[in-house]
């Protein structure tokens, strides 16, 4: 590890390079998708595409923050589930209860994140297995809150989610909002600490960075973004489902890696992960519209994702070779 202050200068090229790989993949995905899907650029297709992107984009931002801190959160999907079923129970189809529902979802994310942070930073369990264990707790609680799919979201919310403001789909604005949120966080001291702790915890500790507190903050932020993902899921589907978040967890990790963030922590950013999440979603779209026989869809999908994961690692590969 070289000195902390020169690190930023050293790392910049690598980050830009991996950013280029992600942007390249996104461009290719968009071109292929628009070639295959005849009405890709029509307002309706764009709106419904973006509407399905938002949950994964939001959870990918949360996962990025946790990964940057040197951890990983395998309970994020379960948190999305729990936050969404709590919110749908609170709102119960009535528009005037929307603020309470949003607050409840965020509260769930906060508490879940704090629990994870406590277990990882203070009890010092390995993040992979610890968050796997807490995911049982969260998904179990989700089943207690809402045993079977049900509950309803006010029609106004689902309608607004698929509407457009000034020609821009609301879901796209939500993604831009998430990007803005990340941009603001990135400038806050907490995120600087997260980068420091993830890059080299010993050095951060020696430089009086509150390591444990920073780790807890990272998991709490992860939980809050999971709550945002939960709200997007509800706005998109219109009802509660106690299993809805299961598939998001591992996809969020894939999005982070495709976005060029190092799983070792301390290097990368959520901008890439957001693009990575969109790439993942587009790949599914492409495989669907490419007339791949149904039974081979998943295989092609999986192979393309592995390819994307490998491509995302190439900049880091070039950078690491001389050192190894």
């Amino acid at each position: 590890m070289s000195g902390t202050f020169s690190l930023r200068g050293v790392r910049l090229p690598a980050v830009q390079l991996s950013g280029a790989a992600t942007v390249g993949m996104l461009v290719v995905a968009v071109i292929v998708n628009s070639a295959l899907q005849p009405n890709f650029w029509s307002g309706y297709a764009l709106t419904s595409n973006f509407a399905t992107f938002v949950p994964l984009v939001a959870i990918a931002v949360g996962q990025t923050i946790v990964v940057l801190s040197g951890g990983i959160d395998l309970s994020l999907g379960a948190q999305v589930t729990l936050a969404s079923v709590v919110a749908v129970r609170v709102v119960d189809g009535q528009l005037d209860r929307l603020p309470q529902a949003v607050a409840a979802a965020l509260g769930v994310g906060l508490v879940c994140g704090a629990l994870n942070g406590l277990v990882v930073a203070l009890v010092r369990l390995q993040p992979i297995v610890a968050t796997f264990a807490t995911s049982f707790v969260f998904s179990g609680l989700a089943l207690v809150v809402l045993p079977t799919p049900g509950g309803s979201v006010p029609l106004e919310v689902t309608t607004a989610y698929r509407a457009a403001v000034l020609g821009l789909p609301v879901a796209l604005l939500a993604i831009l909002g998430l990007a803005l949120l990340w941009w603001a966080l990135r400038r806050h001291r907490v995120l600087r600490h997260v980068y420091a702790v993830g890059g080299d915890p010993e050095a951060a500790y020696a430089s009086l960075v509150p390591v444990a507190r920073t780790r807890v903050s990272a998991y709490v932020l992860g939980g809050l973004f999971a709550a945002l993902a939960a709200l997007a899921v509800l706005a998109n589907t219109g009802s509660g489902d106690p299993f809805v978040g299961n598939e998001l967890t591992l996809a969020s990790v894939a999005a982070v890696v495709i976005g060029g963030t190092s799983l070792a922590g301390g290097r990368g950013g959520a901008g890439g992960s957001m693009l990575g999440a969109i790439v993942l979603a587009l790949v599914t779209n492409i495989v669907f519209f490419a007339d791949v026989p149904t039974t081979y869809r998943q295989l092609v999908n999986g192979a393309v994702i592995i390819l994307a994961l490998a491509l995302a690692g190439i900049p880091a590969l070039q950078k690491r070779r001389p050192a190894a």
């Binding site: 610890a130 264990a133 707790v137 179990g140």
Partner: peptide
């Protein structure tokens, strides 16, 4: 499921 998670922890 919940108890399973807690005991695992």
């Amino acid at each position: 499921t919940i108890v399973n998670g807690v005991v695992l922890l």
